[in-house]
Amino acid sequence: MGKFIETFWKAIDTVMAVLMAAMIALVFINVVLRYGFHSGLRPSVELSRLGFVWVVMLGSVGVLRRGEHLAVSEFSEVLFPALVPYIRKVIWLIVLVSAGMLFWGSVQQTIANWHNISQLTGLPTGLLYLAGVISGALMAIVAVAHIFGPLEHVVRDAPVSEGEDKQ
């Protein structure tokens, strides 16, 4: 089971990497075509935007799972460290509610827009919202795992994590 989960997250990383490479290629080829060949790829802008949304929504799950979303934990950890494990349960509960709303709203929009077809790509605009369905569901699972997992106590002098905000 653990191994399956590991493979699953790695597969998501691979999907993101492939989408990123494809987006770079699409936009770059469009610039080259415009100047070198007086033409362009009509769907390139819409397709790269769609790829972007999928990268962001899949990536957000990984960021949540690794605890890398930007947060200010200093205050509670200094002021009331004993309460922090319980505050964290509440935090995961809020994450669960948000993810659940993202999931449910996206399901409705995916269905509503499945027959709404983009003129330039021929793809349903529901694909945009489908990214929210997958992302919301996975985030909710991560949140549930933390809510029913062990209490997370404050670890003093934790090293600065690499993944913090990269402006």
């Binding site: 993101m16 990497a17 990536g59 960021v63």
Partner: peptide
Amino acid sequence: LVSAARSTSMVMFL
């Protein structure tokens, strides 16, 4: 690519 995708996600989810 993976690391840029993750940093992007963090900023863009925000």
